[in-house]
Design a binder for these strands. Structure first.
Lengths: 186, 186
DNA sequence: AATTCATTTCGATAATTATCGAATTAGATA
DNA sequence: TATCTAATTCGATAATTATCGAAATGAATT
């Protein structure tokens, strides 16, 4: 479903094909006429028209000797509609694995036993690691500071830093001054 | 002004760039993150982002270590609205010489003295030649059949055929049964 | 100031494709 | 049927470009 859009844009991503579409927007033309108008050989025009036809932008009708091409206005309108809805753009990334980056970062910092070699200094990497760490807490459950530290020890001895960052990045919250902690729903 | 459109379409005519746009439609990302998500090297992502930025689809903001890119939603909407409109397509062909085909055909059939070697048998070529011939008549003026023949003789001895085709293709008209002829405004 | 890290730039390579001439196909005319 | 004509297909070439490694840049932390 992505390929469809790519080939659509590719069809329009050429100066001569844009000119062809522009001419056909005024009236239908035969291959030979277009060749004369654009100063290209019929073979080349044929190639361009084939690419435009592939995505449904133009269609051909045989008229005596000639193959007369016309713009498919309905197809054009349909495209515009879908394009403006902008849904399709998001679906362009639908098959992208959005967690690939986090996994890559965590893999770099995690030892075999699951503990962290270090706490990342770079913000983006710290975020990725924290998103991993926070999964050790059950959503909805409340933890005392002692319980939190116990869990964080599995990842790094500097539990105070981990705890502070988790709260700082909004992955965990704390009740009032010295109350319980809980994991924030993502 | 045509180049601008071509580069816009070219910017979107690549599967990975479409995925990037799709991801940025959800939230901003750094180069490194996009590289991990699309399984490409940062250098490649940088190249793609540069092309998208060239046409104003994305913009970068430096954030501490990172270059965070975001989608320029207004630009995207503005472009998609305009670029697929029929008007703008027509202007893509604005600089095309629409008479090039006629001139090419007429040159093939015309002798040095302006007369026609033959009357073309192919419809498209006949049309082109007739559009040339009809220019010998003044718009708005009325001609008797005798006058018409006199003028058509300059082009070909078979004035009857020329006359018939001119009327048949709607380039000239005739009053009632045996009245005068006149050139139809194009 | 030195170092670390993300990004960009550069150079090279492989893949894509626009263009054209030659050969083929398909339609229409005589 | 034989002959034209327009269009398409095929093969080759030149130009464009996606991709990546290596080197350079620039910003930020220590």
């Amino acid at each position: 479903m992505n390929e469809e859009w790519v080939s659509f844009y590719k069809a329009l991503a050429d100066a001569n094909r844009l000119k062809i579409v522009g001419l056909l927007a005024q009236k239908p033309y035969s291959v030979e006429q277009l060749a004369a108008l654009l100063d290209l050989k019929p073979a080349t025009i044929s190639h361009h028209l084939a690419r435009l036809a592939e995505v449904g932008l133009v269609s051909a009708k045989t008229e005596s000797y000639y193959n007369v091409y016309r713009l498919e206005e309905k197809a054009l309108e349909e495209r515009t509609r879908r394009l403006l809805s902008r849904e399709d753009f998001q679906s362009a990334a639908a098959d992208v694995d959005v967690d690939a980056y986090d996994r890559k970062v965590v893999a770099d910092y995690k030892r075999r036993d699951g503990s962290l070699k270090t706490i990342p200094a770079q913000r983006k990497k710290l975020e990725a690691v924290l998103r991993h760490v926070v999964k050790a807490f059950e959503p909805g459950k409340r933890y005392s500071e002692k319980q939190v530290n116990k869990i964080l020890e599995r990842f790094h001895e500097d539990t105070a830093s981990l705890r502070r960052e988790l709260v700082g990045y909004g992955l965990m919250k704390r009740e009032g001054g010295g109350g319980d902690y809980w994991r924030v729903e993502s």
